[in-house]
Design a protein around this nucleic acid. Sequence first.
DNA 1: ATTGTGATGATTGTCGACAATTGACTCGTA
DNA 2: TACGAGTCAATTGTCGACAATCATCACAAT
Lengths: 224, 224
Amino acid sequence: MFSTVSTTDLVTQIARQITEAIVTGKLRPGARLTELQLSREFGTSRAPVREAARLLESQGLVVSNPRRGFFVRTLTASDMRDIYELRIGLELHAAGIALERMGPAEIALLERQIAKLYALADAGSVESQIFEDFIFHRMLCEASGNARLIKVYDELATEMRAGITLIGKLYDDPHRIAETHEPILAALKKGDREELLSALHYHITVAQEAVVALFEGIERGDAS
Amino acid sequence: MFSTVSTTDLVTQIARQITEAIVTGKLRPGARLTELQLSREFGTSRAPVREAARLLESQGLVVSNPRRGFFVRTLTASDMRDIYELRIGLELHAAGIALERMGPAEIALLERQIAKLYALADAGSVESQIFEDFIFHRMLCEASGNARLIKVYDELATEMRAGITLIGKLYDDPHRIAETHEPILAALKKGDREELLSALHYHITVAQEAVVALFEGIERGDAS
DNA sequence: ATTGTGATGATTGTCGACAATTGACTCGTA
DNA sequence: TACGAGTCAATTGTCGACAATCATCACAAT
């Protein structure tokens, strides 16, 4: 999850910086990525920048028009609906498997993560709460023990972050955000499969509806 | 699904050729991909080859060791188990959504696809049947209407093909392969959700067990 | 025989440059 | 004023070259 060592290769480093710029909103959707400008900014030549851009394209953060270059991908309401719908399938599947594999230790970790959400609700920034929120769900996916599944989750998480950045509004009540994770934890503790899947489904669906509605509003021309 | 025009850009073209070489087995798992050799083979310079290799890395077909280059990814039994396990979650989710959206026309297309499988069982090559088998399941995913989900399926399909290539043995009774799709179709026609998910789950699990067992055998040192 | 060491060849990572193409801009004309 | 053709700057796609690094191999020492 976190950078292993500071000495990663140049392409990865560049890709990470561009990703940060996108998910934090410094690079707006639709913004053009000119290779020369980026290479100057990073103090490298164009080659590593191109490769980094290709990497980000495969992750769905940027799109490339042949002969025109790379642009920050503009996520639509339809995109977000698909992403969250897929996430439902993915995360419920992960939870179903995880339920069989989790011991008290793993569940305790999730509980601590929720505590962290509460703490950030009181004292932290919105961005850090969003980040830790994703960590919670990633831990759930990790508990499935399926590396391939985790990889897909990470890709979805990146896209969701890229989309959500525009939207601090969703998190107007950070305390409530933390609360909504409780039913998931409760079901896990009980070992109730039906309840777990139901709680997760509800949790994600609520987020989906909020995000999609907001995007539809933006597309309709409300304040960005 | 198929190439839109013959004039795709160079990187895509190279990536496609390397992919073909991998999934057809011409490039064995673990084989080294030297940029110079590939660039000579394609009559280009190294730059497009590098980008194509990066693309394939993001698809999980090749891996890169920094300063050492690219190698054809060696899929393990554990990898295949994860891939098929994820596929179960993905495809069942897709089917659940698809059930609501499919009309007689879409179901008829699936029926024709099964007919094609029978035809290939009688007269076709194993490879073409494998291909059309994947098409059947892709059609099911397409019916979900979720583009993001389809993208993940395509990635999984590529990895499965890369793994399965070694294995013509799994398709020793091609007629039976076609048959195993019938229960899925039957459930769809009935509109029985439970039966559909159950049939799909069984169908994929059977494949998973066969593939994983084969890989475990290979890892144990049986004939490759 | 085995292990450590040094040279050597091959390969990657990165760079700057050139040609091809695109999009915008200007100018002229109806 | 509106529209179209032609020109031009900017950017990408591709290339060959150089330096840094790694693996291999031979050779010597224990």
